[in-house]
Nucleic acid binder design. Structure first.
Length: 115
RNA sequence: CAGGUCGGUUGGGCGAUCGCGGUCCUGUGUUUACGGGAUCGAGGAAAGUCCGCACUCCAUAGAGCACGGCGUCGGAUAGCACCCGGGGCGGGGAACCCUCCGUGAGGAGCUAACCUGCCGGACAAGGGCCACAGAAACAAACAGCCACCCUUACCCCCAUCCCCUCUUCCACUGGGAGAGGGGCGCAGGGGUGAGGGGGUGAUGGUGAAAAGGUGGUGUAAAAGACCACCGGCAUCUGCAGUAAUGUGGAUGGCCAGGUAACCCCCGCCGGGAGCAAGGCCAAGCAGGGACGAAGCCGUCUGCGGACGGCGGGAGACUGCUCGUCUUCAUACGUACCCUUUCACACGGUGAUUGGGUCAGUCCCGGGUAGGCCGCACCGAGCGGCGCGGCAACGCACCGCCCAGAGAGAUGAUCGCACAGUGGCGCUUUGGCGUCAUGGACAGAAUGCGGCUUAUAAACGGACCUGAGGU
RNA sequence: GGUCCCGUGGUGUAGCGGCCUAACAUGCGGCCCUGUCAAGGCCGAGAUCGCGGGUUCGAAUCCCGUCGGGACCG
C-alpha cells in the first residue's frame, strides 16, 4: 500500500476518530468517515495492547498488505482508520483479509462491481 | 579421552513471484500526477535508560554554599562509575588424591583453572545507634578478689589479779617461795566476720561483639607488670616493584569494639535543559504603530437601497511628477475605552476633567498546528592488513561511503538445500530411509562510547585438573 | 526525550534496622446466638514481604541490579 493512500495528519486522525462510524471485528476495528476530496485515505494504528514493537509492526504490516489488494474495490472520497487488536499479531494474512472483507461489506463501501 | 572454566564469531542460506521506503538518473505532462532504470534498506542487543560525551539553546565576573555522584594502585580514552592490567581482604568453585563421618549406598571438608563482592577516614573533628541477654555495649559504676590502714563484733592464746590443792621455809589464827588446777579475761598476739578507705581489672555466664592468644615469672590479689613463642598495630629502615603492596630487620608500647550502603569529615568531579534541543519560512490571527476623508450629480426603485460619473482618502507601480491600477467611505452618538475629582442607597450608580477609538490602506509582528533545516552526515566512521602493548587501546597503510522518518518503510507466498525436534521402519546401536513439524531474543527515530538485561542454534579457540599411550 | 511512584494473606492498606515467627479492615472456614436468614459474639486458617546479590551481629525496612505495574511533564 503506497504512501499516497496513507492518512498522515494528526488532525485527520482526530476528526475521523471523533465523528466517524466504527465497525468492530475480533481482529481489527474499522472507522469510516466521508471526505470532501475524491480520494481514499487509510490510517493504520496499533496500540500498546497489541504487544511490543515487533508485534505492533507485524499487525500493521498485515493490515497494509491485506488492504493493498482491496483498495481498487473501495469507494472513493472516504477516510478509513484500521485499529489492530491483540489477536492480529499471531494471525495469517488470509485471516486479516477475510476480517477486512467482512468489515468493508458491513460498512457498505465496496464498489457495486465487487458487491 | 573424561570433566570443569573462560572469552570470541555468526545469529538463518539460495532462488522465483507480488509488494514497501530512501537517493540518483530519466520519460510523458502546465503543476499535482503517472511511469522506467540503477542502487541501498534494522541489531548484537536497535531494548532498558544505569553512566559518560558530542551537538544546540539558556544562564554565567571570580569564588563559595547547598545538593548529587565517585573514592585501592597504575594504565587506556574525547570522556566515563561498571573498560584493561595489577594489589589487599573475603565468598564460591568438578573429578582424582587426601582427611573426617557413616555398616553401606553415600555425605562433608580440602582444592586447580576460573568466577565473584568490597576498597579514603571510626588510634583523637564531632554526633547518633548497637534489640534480647548481660554487672556493664565503651566509660565508669555494681557484684567479686585482696596485702595494708581505720572502726567494730566474735573466737583462741595469755601476762597480771583472784580462788583452791600440794610441797617447802619462817620469828607460825599468819606470811613467803615454788609447782599444779580453775575463774575474770585488760594491754598484747593470732584468727574469723562486717563497714569504710585503698589496690585490682574480666572472671562463671550473657552476647554478633566484653581491653590480643598460649605457657611461665610475679603478687596480698592481680594485670603485657615482666619473659618466651605466636598474631596484630605504629615508627624507622633494607630489598623487589612506577605504585598500591609484598618480604625481611630494629625499636616501641598493647591506644582501648562495631556501624560512615546512619549523619558527618577529607579529596576529586558536576551550571541548567534537552533534537518535541534549536534555527528559518508562506499565509492567517492576537497585539503594536503610521496615515487618515467630503461630498455632489444622474438613472432605476419594491423607497430599504443598487448602479454610473465627478471629486476625496490610503497604498502599489516610478528616482520624481504625470498617469494607470487596487481598494474604501459616514457611522459622531444619551456610543465605547482609559483617566481626574466629587456625591451617594458604595463589589455599584450618578455627575464631572482630560485623552483616545470608530472607514480603509500600509508597516512591524508572535506562540501552537503546518513546511524546510538540524538529519542521514568524511565521522571519537566502517572493513582489511601490519606494527607496538600482557590487555584496554594506539599508530601506519589500503579500500569503502553504508538505512532513514513522515501516524513511523524490511513484508507475503512458493520451491530447494541446512541444522534441530517428534513418529515409523531397518540396523553392526554408530547411523540410514521416510513422513510431519519447524528457525531464539527482538524493530532504528540526533549520533557515539561503556554497562545491564533477553537470546534457539551453530562454528572455532584458550586455560586447568585427572587418566592412558608415545 | 525526561521525571517520579508502587509491588506485603483472596482484596485494600499499615509497618523507626531488633518487641515482625509481620498489624488492621474486609473476605474465607468452624462454633455459638435465632424457628430461619442477616446482624452480632468466639475461635481458626491464610504471607518464599516481586526476584537476585550485597552492607550489617541482624534486612519487609538500607544500597545495587533486575522484572512487572502505574502516573506525570514537554
Amino acid at each position: 500500500m503506497q504512501r499516497k493512500f496513507r492518512l498522515t495528519r494528526s488532525e485527520d486522525f482526530k476528526r475521523v476518530r471523533r465523528s466517524g462510524k466504527s465497525y468492530a471485528h475480533p481482529l481489527v476495528v474499522l472507522i469510516v468517515q466521508k471526505n470532501d476530496q475524491p480520494r481514499l485515505k487509510i490510517g493504520i494504528a496499533a496500540g500498546r495492547t497489541v504487544g511490543t514493537a515487533v508485534y505492533r509492526n507485524r499487525a500493521k504490516r498485515l493490515l497494509r498488505e491485506a488492504m493493498r489488494t482491496l483498495i481498487p474495490s473501495i469507494v472513493s472520497n472516504l477516510d478509513l482508520i484500521l485499529i489492530a487488536r491483540p489477536g492480529l499479531a499471531s494471525a495469517t494474512l488470509e485471516d486479516a483479509r477475510q476480517a477486512l472483507l467482512t468489515l468493508l461489506q458491513r460498512a457498505q463501501i465496496l464498489t457495486p462491481i465487487h458487491e
